[in-house]
Simulated assay, not measured.
Amino acid sequence: MTRKTARQCASWLLPSLIAINLALTAGCASKTTRYSASNRGSSCYAKALPSSGEGGLAWGDTLSMARKKSLDNCMRYAGRSGGTPDTCQVVLAQCRH
């Protein structure tokens, strides 16, 4: 009797899990996300590179914020990659129009 019960459970368990998964996926796929103007991303970016090692790219609301973030990232990544963090310089900085 135990074998019969186990088979009955196995026969409906997998289809039930698949149906629940599809229902949850369909429910999430129909939701739309609305962003306010402030959440659409920053309009300025900057890239800083050291003389050796990895550099850093960063976005910011203002050009000065992007430059500062990219320098901070450059120093962090150059230090991790065995480069020279003290030589980081901003090589590109722009704002989208």
Rank of each mutant, 00 (worst) to 15 (best):
K68T: 13
A58F: 01
C95D: 04
R34A: 12
L14V: 06
A29C: 07
L17Y: 10
R40M: 05
S52A: 13
R34I: 11
R67N: 04
N39L: 12
Q8W: 10
G53A: 10
L24I: 12
D86R: 15
R7Y: 11
G82C: 08
H97T: 09
T2L: 15
E54W: 06
S81Q: 14
Y45P: 00
I18E: 08
A19L: 10
A58N: 01
C95R: 02
L17W: 12
S52N: 14
L57V: 11
T84Q: 11
A10P: 07
G53T: 09
A6S: 14
C74G: 00
Y77V: 03
T62D: 05
A66I: 02
A93V: 15
A23M: 13
K4H: 13
D86S: 12
G27W: 00
Y77Q: 08
L49W: 00
K68S: 09
D72G: 06
I20L: 10
R80E: 14
S64A: 09
G83S: 05
T62W: 08
R76A: 04
Q94T: 12
Q8K: 13
M1T: 15
T84E: 03
A37T: 11
R76N: 08
A48R: 00
A29E: 02
S81N: 05
M75E: 05
N73T: 07
G56Y: 01
G55Q: 01
R3S: 15
C74Y: 02
S16R: 09
S38Q: 07
L17S: 11
L92N: 05
Y77W: 14
P85F: 07
R40H: 07
L71Q: 07
G41S: 11
L14F: 09
S64E: 10
R67S: 06
G27E: 02
S11V: 10
